[in-house]
């Protein structure tokens, strides 16, 4: 394989990280919490697509829509049942630990329902590879990249131009003041979880289309890497999550190709540490302004 194909596969993998990181970063930006269960929602989403396609024989796109709706509801329920009661808790650690608990809960539910044996996921993109300049690129990779770009653009438009998007920005800046404007803060946070979790289903389906092994722990490592991507790009920033995700994918894939596939993850995390030493707020992170 040539450098170019390693690169494009890296961008493809990075696009998956980007979609997951968008969910992480939005929830962090608006609810001010790290939802460590986000990666496991991806896994649940992939299982729903798998069951819909393989066991029920539903075509790929409707299966994906079913999974998105399922994860959307799942995300909203998790927030309402597990996180909301702790929102005003004295310690921010409480909700963080709960998120880790929810992560294990989802993994164990998947273990119970689907069993420990890995499933072989069938690709949702049923298109032939595309040849660019003599190099064959899988259409799954191209669809993944396109999906991440479209999702980022739509989210940016949504946050900047629509009323619920503006409400998200207001809640992210000052929850109390947002409430005084007549913004339903709980509703806005629910909406954020709904969007992030629906995106997780998309990420799960696309990821398992490229890397077709699905088990209850499938979401765990990509979840952590997407978190790295979000921090890398500047947590809370939508373009930051996107760029962070793609850079991470490229670094990981090139490390696998040219250095060692065994220490690729170590290299990814080393890069994160270096970036944070140089720019503690991440590439696109805002310097936190103190209010007068």
């Amino acid at each position: 394989m040539s450098f170019f194909s390693y690169l494009i596969n890296g961008v493809g993998l990075g696009s998956v990280y980007a979609i997951i990181a968008l969910g992480y970063t939005m929830v962090y930006g608006i609810a001010k919490m790290l939802n460590f269960a986000h990666g496991d929602v991806i896994m649940i989403g992939a299982y729903i697509v798998f069951v819909a396609m393989t066991s029920l024989g539903i075509p790929a796109l409707p299966s994906l829509i079913v999974a998105m709706i399922f994860c959307l509801v799942l995300g909203v329920v998790i927030e309402k049942v597990a996180y909301r009661p702790l929102r005003n808790a004295a310690s921010k650690l409480a909700v963080l630990i709960t998120a880790i608990g929810v992560s294990y809960l989802l993994q164990n539910i998947a273990l119970l329902v689907f069993g420990p044996n890995p499933k072989s996921f069938s690709n949702i993109v049923k298109l032939p590879p595309v040849s660019i300049g003599g190099i064959n690129i899988s259409s799954t990779t191209l669809v993944t990249i396109a999906a991440s770009v479209v999702i980022m653009l739509v989210l940016t438009f949504f946050v900047k131009k629509t009323k619920p998007g503006q409400a998200m920005q207001a809640v992210s800046e000052d929850r109390g003041a947002a409430g005084l404007m007549g913004i339903n803060v709980n509703g806005t946070i629910s909406l954020t979880f709904a969007i992030g979790s629906a995106l997780a289903a998309v990420a799960g389906a696309l990821m398992c289309s490229s890397y077709p092994i699905l088990d209850p722990y499938t979401g765990s490592m990509p979840g952590i890497k997407a978190f790295v991507a979000a921090v890398f790009g500047g947590i809370g920033s939508i373009p930051g999550a996107m760029i962070g995700g793609i850079l991470l994918g490229i670094i990981e894939n090139l490390s696998k190709a040219y250095i060692s596939s065994q220490i690729a993850d170590a290299i990814v995390f080393a890069v994160l540490i270096i970036v944070l030493l140089v720019r503690p707020a991440g590439l696109f992170g805002k310097n936190v302004q103190e209010k007068v």
Partner: peptide, 13 residues
């Protein structure tokens, strides 16, 4: 409508 103490405007809007 309340004008809160410390103004609480949205600094990044």
């Amino acid at each position: 409508a309340q004008v809160p103490e410390g103004r609480r405007i949205f600094a990044n809007l």
